[in-house]
């Protein structure tokens, strides 16, 4: 049984367009022109209960649109979505009580003059959380998110990082079964982003919630997701384990070597030197040649240190975004 099933999902926006200038402005009063923008095309995938999935892609790839379709904020042009047995855009109350959409760009909604505790109490009534569950959940979230000092502060007075923590607490208080996280660490400093990542890892481990995450920060993806769905131009370009992504999308590995006597000439015809720092070299080597090249370098150079690494997810995705698959 899947928590989320997406089948042939497409979303087309109709956006008004006109040329620049006064004449075009007047013409548009009587004759409006539109252009169709296909944000999501024939998207299909399934997510089992309890899985944490990263939905990745470059800007404008259709990730946020897909999140809004799955959470019920948008009505698709074609296709179907099933989340916990519900059609999201019908926004039935039992469905809304089991999902949460957390957006890094807007972590908290509602009255901003209220304190965090006021807002949490509002959630308690809104989601019909029994008193015992509320207090237990609140204590847990206070511990995990370090909310204690924020409880009596107004939402509007919180920093972005604090707002994100409060937003997560508000969204997780009712223990949603499916969590849509849209750029949860957007704009956060290193410490705040790390704290949010640590919390999400602990929460998903404990609660067994199904999570769909979009993020431009690879650290988010690497620390939380075992499965990636790569979307570009509205289509799924890759769907599989995080570990296989590099192997499938990048035909190279990185070979880091420290050799005091090495010069660029030593690597010519053997590997591509992509960077050098003092006696250390970073070489790009075709996957199939890694054993042969390593052996060659060890026999021809006085090597102090050597390491073979997968290219970083960031590097792989950058290449995919720029050059396509």
């Amino acid at each position: 049984m899947n928590a989320v099933s997406v089948d042939g999902l497409s979303m087309t926006y109709r956006v008004p367009v006109r040329e620049a200038g006064l004449k075009a402005a007047f013409r548009s009063l009587v004759h409006r022109r539109y252009r169709e923008v296909q944000a999501v095309r024939d998207l299909s995938f399934e997510i089992p209960h309890g899985q944490v999935v990263g939905l990745l892609g470059p800007n404008g790839a259709g990730k946020t649109t897909a999140m809004k379709l799955m959470s019920g904020l948008l009505h698709p042009t074609a296709g179907s979505v099933d989340v916990l047995g519900f059609t999201p855009w019908q926004r039935r109350t039992p469905f809304l009580k089991q999902i949460a959409l957390v957006r890094g760009s807007r972590p908290t909604g509602g009255a901003q003059e209220l304190t965090v505790l006021d807002s949490l109490q509002y959630q308690r009534v809104l989601y019909g959380i029994p008193d015992t569950d509320y207090h237990a959940g609140l204590d847990e979230l206070i511990g995990l998110l370090g909310l204690g000092p924020l409880l009596h502060r107004q939402l509007r007075a919180l920093s972005l990082g604090q707002k994100m923590r409060a937003g997560l607490a508000l969204s997780l208080l009712y223990r949603p079964k499916v969590l849509f996280l849209d750029e949860p660490t957007l704009g956060l400093d290193v410490s705040a982003a790390t704290a949010v990542r640590r919390f999400l890892a602990e929460y998903t481990g404990q609660s067994g919630a199904t999570v769909v995450l979009t993020s431009h920060y690879m650290a988010d993806v690497e620390s939380l997701c075992r499965r990636l769905i790569l979307v570009d131009h509205g289509r799924v370009q890759y769907d599989g384990p995080l570990e296989r992504l590099s192997a499938q999308l990048s035909p190279y590995k990185l070979l880091r070597i420290s050799a005091p006597a090495a010069t660029k000439e030593n690597f010519e015809g053997v590997a591509e030197a992509v960077a050098t720092h003092g006696v250390s070299w970073e070489l790009r080597v075709p996957r199939d040649d890694i054993a042969r090249v390593t052996a060659h370098l060890l026999t021809t150079l006085d090597v102090i240190d050597l390491a073979v690494e997968e290219p970083s997810l960031e590097t792989v995705l950058d290449r995919v975004y720029r050059e396509g698959l």
Partner: peptide
Amino acid sequence: DGTVGHQLLEPQ
């Protein structure tokens, strides 16, 4: 400002 999105996803 788009905050109606929050309201649309509330169970009320």
